[in-house]
């Protein structure tokens, strides 16, 4: 009985983890490789200046990407503490 309940909770854990980690990993990898893709194939796009300034799109996007990376880690930890941790505790207490 106990072990069946345990394996049910474990399956929920695996599912919850996948729902959180996979989209965030995909977001991390695609945002980075899009950035690299532009540098590799269309470097001129990053040289275009924001209208009326001398700040280029590339530098703005670079700064935003650094911010995004940090935000991804914040989102993950928030979700992990809220959704994953309670399930792990359940498993430990079964």
């Amino acid at each position: 009985m106990n072990s069946q309940k345990k394996s049910e909770i474990y399956n929920t854990l695996k599912k919850t983890r996948a729902q959180i980690s996979i989209p965030l990993t995909v977001l991390t990898v695609t945002s980075y490789f899009s950035f690299i893709w532009v540098i590799a194939f269309k470097p001129n796009i990053f040289g275009i200046m924001l209208p009326g300034t001398n700040i280029s799109i590339g530098i703005l996007l670079g700064f935003l990407l650094i911010l995004l990376i940090f935000i991804i880690t914040l989102i993950y930890v928030y979700l992990a503490n809220k959704k994953i941790e309670p399930i792990i505790n359940k498993i430990k207490n079964v």
Binding site: L24, T25, V29, G58, I66, T73
Partner: peptide, 21 residues
């Protein structure tokens, strides 16, 4: 100029990967 940012971002992008996986 800009090229320095390629390294900075590359060094940083490993961290979410470490955290998530």
């Amino acid at each position: 100029g800009f090229d320095g940012l390629i390294y900075s971002i590359g060094f940083l992008i490993g961290w979410p990967i470490i955290l998530l996986l």
